[in-house]
Design a protein around this nucleic acid. Structure first.
Lengths: 259, 259
DNA sequence: ACAAAAGTGTTAACATTACACCCATGA
DNA sequence: TCATGGGTGTAATGTTAACACTTTTGT
């Protein structure tokens, strides 16, 4: 499995990181609603694997879901959109709210404050990170090829992970990914999930692979084909793939008119 | 349509009300999370009508959904349970989170502060009600006969309303009821919705009435009967109703073992 | 020619819908 | 005995699942 990786050099990242975060915590309570955060699960489908975008702060030994806070005059969905745009560079994203993480375990051991302290952030006089946060969670479907990741804010690393091989995650972020997956499973046959995950023309077999990963079961090839075509959301392109020792499959793409 | 009504006499309610609310706003910020509230849509099924429990504060000209706040060390569901228990006296309730009300319109014109002022509450030095609130909304299904309403806190009146004849509601509470209904419509065939709404033995026709109100369409009598029985969640009682000029129907109740 | 995968056709099993029919009951 | 609503039977229709068959292509 290929993983996209971007890491700052140790030299100048440290200073930049501390500057940014200091400015952030100074203003946070004036800009954002208290006690509410946003976490996003950003999916992509690449090399036949369903992947999630994770980020790492400084040199923490765990990864986080991309997240942020809600501005005082902003809806939750707008906040999710803003965060998603900032992280992925994408405008055409459709965040779907699927869960509220409100476990009391989230504040256990003051995890956020401890993280900030390890990152050498001076929190004296600032209580923003000490409060209990309830996180509203959104998922989004993206085309990895279109995502333009830039290192910004106080993030040191971005990486796409196969959902079957997640690293250690902060707090309850692993649970959040699982909740996103089970919601995605429900949405699979209700919404055009493939539309945002598959942007290049694809074969029916590739689309079936995606459905099988999300649905976690083997689907009948012939029935899957008919079901997809009967929904009338796919457009068959006359072009065909070449090179392999079998009949070239048709390529498809999602119709633009629908949705 | 019968409506249960309970109203305090003008004489002693005013003083009691002001005492309670003053104590409340003094302690609110120490006890509750900032910026997050809970609203509950409490359904019942009575006289063939689907009803919602609404409350009125003081002599305000509109009704509110029963609501409350989240304690600092409490999950959202626990908060909803606590609020529901306090309002209905019921323990066996299964709140279902269905919506987050985060519209910016909610703080328009400082509606909460204006309400408090009209209620003669002294808010000097207290900014609890000035902040923007995001409300997490739960619905619950109850048996009206088992609900024990007591006038408490700063509420002057409780009333059950037919969902087709709702009065003026505070803020976006009408929208919240609509969201609850459309969620209930989805849950109707997934969860034992009838279990909590129908506690006395009922005829198949009565159950069908409930389903038709929620589902908003006419159902075939004979197929409905078979469908319900095939789910194996109903217990047929050998007793029969009497008195009317037609065959006495069987009575049913939900099996206790399931759920 | 053969293996592998794509595409099409067919049928059985199952669920849903519509409606015909009979039953019990009180006026 | 008639009107009314309750209970059961059944055929038509639609949906899903399983699998046989044919087509295309590189070795």
């Amino acid at each position: 499995m290929k993983k996209t990786k971007a890491k700052l050099s140790k030299n100048n990242s440290g200073r930049k990181f501390e500057n940014t975060i200091t400015a952030f915590i100074k203003n946070a309570e004036n800009i954002y609603l208290p006690g509410i955060s946003i976490d996003t699960v950003i999916f992509s489908f690449h090399d036949g694997k369903l992947r999630v975008l994770l980020i790492r702060y400084g040199d923490m030994p765990f990864y986080n879901l991309p997240g942020g806070y809600v501005e005082k005059e902003e809806t939750l969905e707008d906040a999710a959109l803003r965060i998603l745009r900032r992280r992925t560079g994408l405008n055409a994203i459709f965040p779907e709210q699927f869960y509220i993480a409100d476990s009391l375990e989230r504040t256990r051991n003051n995890a956020v404050v401890r993280m900030m302290t390890k990152l050498n952030v001076d929190l004296t006089g600032n209580h923003w990170f000490e409060q209990r946060f309830i996180s509203v969670c959104f998922y989004a479907l993206t085309d990895e090829a279109k995502v333009r990741i830039t290192i910004q804010d106080f993030i040191s690393e971005f990486k796409w992970f196969d959902i079957g091989q997640l690293p250690d995650l902060f707090l309850d972020h692993k649970l959040i990914v699982e909740k996103a997956l089970s919601r995605l499973r429900v949405d699979l046959y209700q919404r055009p999930v493939g539309l945002n995950l598959m942007n290049k023309p694809f074969t029916m077999g590739e689309l079936q692979q995606l459905y099988e990963i999300i649905d976690q079961r083997k689907l009948d090839r012939t029935n899957f084909q008919r079901k997809m075509l009967s929904m009338n959301i796919l457009e068959r392109l006359e072009k065909k793939q070449t090179g392999k020792a079998y009949k070239s499959p048709y390529l498809y793409r999602f119709k633009q008119s629908d949705n």
